[in-house]
Design a protein around this nucleic acid. Structure first.
Length: 287
DNA sequence: GCGCAGGGGGTCG
DNA sequence: CGACCCCCTGCG
């Protein structure tokens, strides 16, 4: 495959560091020149912001412009979203200024399911390492700029791994969960297609939660980061901390129930709660 | 430098 | 509600 280039101009809502460091993805790494290189589907891409232009360059399985438009969700109007959210309160206004270039990626459902099962009780450097090792062992190799990259394995390839194989890759207690979830898909107890077409969020959430290793938080991340359900509001320790600090002000944040935070988020942010979560999370986690 | 404790984007029983 | 694998990080 040949290298392709696509340049995006006049985009005020696109900042590589915001997009790749806001916690939605695990396979993008910063280069020495501040650009980011990552693998998604069968593509290896480098993304660089220079003089206000976004330069996409890499090896793509198809037309680079179409692939970028889809993956970076370039047809969604973030100016409008940010304007709506900024009017809600001063916290959101500040956080949006801080993370003005955040975009929610259109990530592959299968990869997102497995990645967020791995994320449970884990930290980002280790999550990235595990996913890299899985890809290296079960994915396809792509050479770009004389470096080796590996695609994330499909369910059939990952299905070749035993629980012991997974344990050897450093998954820890998540080995069994990944093994079981993969088997559920291979046995067609559940399909990616039925998840992709399900529009009812509550039903979708329940279906996802039948998977081993998928609880409420992971299900919400999958819906937000892969299925474009902008209204869902994943609550992790950071988001709980922020919401308590800003609005609830309970001395012991652990006493604040998830339900209370969910209701608050829905009431304040409505159908854009998931995006509000990203701005707040990125803002307060860095602080 | 290196060794060691502490803890981490939650889920499950 | 406690256990859970194992790196990764930060301190001594």
């Amino acid at each position: 495959m040949k290298e392709q280039t696509y340049i995006l101009e006049n985009c005020n809502s696109f900042e590589p560091v915001h997009i790749f460091e806001c916690g939605q993805c695990f396979r993008w790494n910063k280069e020495d020149d501040e650009s980011y290189t990552g693998v998604f589907k069968n593509n290896v891409l480098n993304v660089k912001k220079e003089n206000g232009k976004i330069i996409f360059k890499g090896i793509c399985d198809g037309n680079i412009e179409e692939i970028c438009k889809d993956y970076f969700d370039l047809d969604t109007n973030y100016e409008e979203i940010k304007s709506t959210l900024s009017k809600i309160d001063k916290y959101l206004e500040t956080s949006i200024q801080y993370g003005s270039g955040i975009r929610i990626l259109n990530q592959d459902l299968w990869e997102t399911i497995i990645s967020f099962i791995i994320s449970a009780n884990n930290n980002i450097p280790r999550i990235k390492g595990i996913i890299e090792r899985i890809s290296k062992k079960y994915g396809e190799k792509i050479i770009y700029n004389e470096k080796e990259y590996y695609t994330f394995p499909n369910m059939y390839k990952l299905g070749e791994a035993s629980v012991e194989d997974l344990r050897a890759l450093g998954l820890g207690f998540r080995d069994k969960r990944i093994y079981e979830t993969t088997k559920m898909f291979l046995n067609k107890e559940i399909t990616l297609e039925e998840l992709e077409k399900e529009q009812n969020i509550d039903i979708l959430r329940e279906k996802l939660m039948t998977l081993s290793g998928v609880g409420g938080k992971v299900a919400d991340c999958i819906m937000l980061f892969s299925l474009k359900k902008f209204s869902v509001f994943p609550i992790d320790v950071w988001v709980r901390r922020v919401m308590n600090e800003l609005y609830i002000k309970e001395p012991d944040e652990n006493k604040v129930s998830k339900a209370l935070i969910q209701n608050l988020a829905k009431e304040k942010y409505k159908d854009l709660a998931g995006l509000a979560q990203q701005y707040l999370f990125y803002w307060k986690r860095d602080a």
